[in-house]
Amino acid sequence: MLKIDAHQHFWIFDPVRDSWINDEMLVIKHDFLPADLLPVLQQNGVDGCVSVQASQSEEETRFLLDLAAENPFVKGVVGWVDLKADNLDERLQYYKQFDKLKGFRHILQSEPDKQYMLQPQFKKGIAGLQRHGYTYDILIYPEHLRYAAQLAAEFPDQPFVVDHLAKPHIKDQEISDWEKDMRALAQYQNVHCKISGMLTEADWKTWKPEDFVPYLDVVFNAFGINRVMFGSDWPVCLLAGGYKGTMEVINGYCEKLTATEQALFWGNNAAAFYNL
């Protein structure tokens, strides 16, 4: 069975650029590179990964593409480009030379304007991605879900994937509003969801596998087996149980799936979505 980790990060730690990594996060306050990840993937029987941007610059995109070129197990890159730039078409045309560049992401969750993704210039950028055949990763909090649904409705032919289940408030066991908005978003067949980043939304030290079951039930039920994919969110997952803990939770949940369903979730869906 093909296993793809559809969401992980590399970085050379920079205290200014990476200021989101605070003093509670000392375990990830240093460099993380392919040589650090490869043995972890091998230990967990994972065949390859998709590396996702963590800072908003084209320098970051090139950094990830260089790492992917040197490391065959990095199967795809989700980079960053200024979607509101006047020369976006030119930039996307430039990136066509890199086979491993599959899509783009913007850190929407940090934008002061919660409706940033509905700004005309941003939507013009999404239209550009669609023209050039790139995917888009939606990084948001639950309060942004209704706007993501509007975006998905406006671009029915653009492949979208929600990162980290849109970060539900698992620690506080809040589910009802998130569930309603998640189900509304899942009605759009062009939207997929990554089962990633869950452990860091729970209590880092005291979470139990059963804490995640209600949220997983919602996502698997709403999106269906063809639109969900596994992601570790390594190295951020090291804050709350690491790769091993992440795999234990998801393996436990997936035991009830058929062999065909497991193959889709663990690798085939990501390979199809990102054209790996």
Rank of each mutant, 00 (worst) to 15 (best):
V162G: 00
V162A: 00
V162M: 00
D163A: 01
D163G: 01
D163Y: 00
H164I: 04
H164W: 03
H164F: 02
H164S: 03
A166I: 05
A166P: 04
K167M: 04
K167D: 01
P168T: 01
H169I: 11
H169Y: 14
I170D: 07
I170V: 14
I170H: 06
I170K: 07
K171L: 10
K171D: 12
K171M: 12
K171P: 08
D172Y: 11
D172M: 09
D172K: 10
Q173Y: 12
Q173K: 15
Q173V: 09
Q173E: 13
Q173A: 14
Q173C: 10
E174G: 07
I175R: 15
I175Y: 11
I175K: 15
S176T: 13
S176A: 15
D177Q: 14
D177G: 08
W178N: 04
E179F: 08
E179P: 07
K180V: 11
K180H: 12
K180R: 15
K180Q: 13
D181K: 11
D181N: 14
M182W: 05
M182G: 06
M182V: 14
R183N: 10
R183A: 07
A184K: 15
A184R: 14
A184D: 14
L185F: 05
L185Q: 03
A186S: 14
A186C: 09
A186H: 04
A186M: 08
Q187N: 13
Q187E: 15
Q189L: 12
N190W: 06
N190D: 09
V191C: 07
V191P: 02
H192R: 09
H192Y: 15
H192L: 07
I195Q: 04
I195V: 15
I195C: 08
S196Q: 03
G197M: 00
G197E: 00
G197H: 01
G197N: 02
G197V: 00
M198K: 06
M198C: 07
M198T: 02
L199S: 05
L199W: 06
L199Q: 10
L199Y: 05
L199M: 11
T200N: 09
T200K: 05
E201P: 08
A202R: 08
A202Q: 09
D203W: 07
D203T: 12
D203C: 10
D203G: 09
D203S: 14
W204F: 15
K205T: 13
K205S: 13
T206A: 11
T206Q: 12
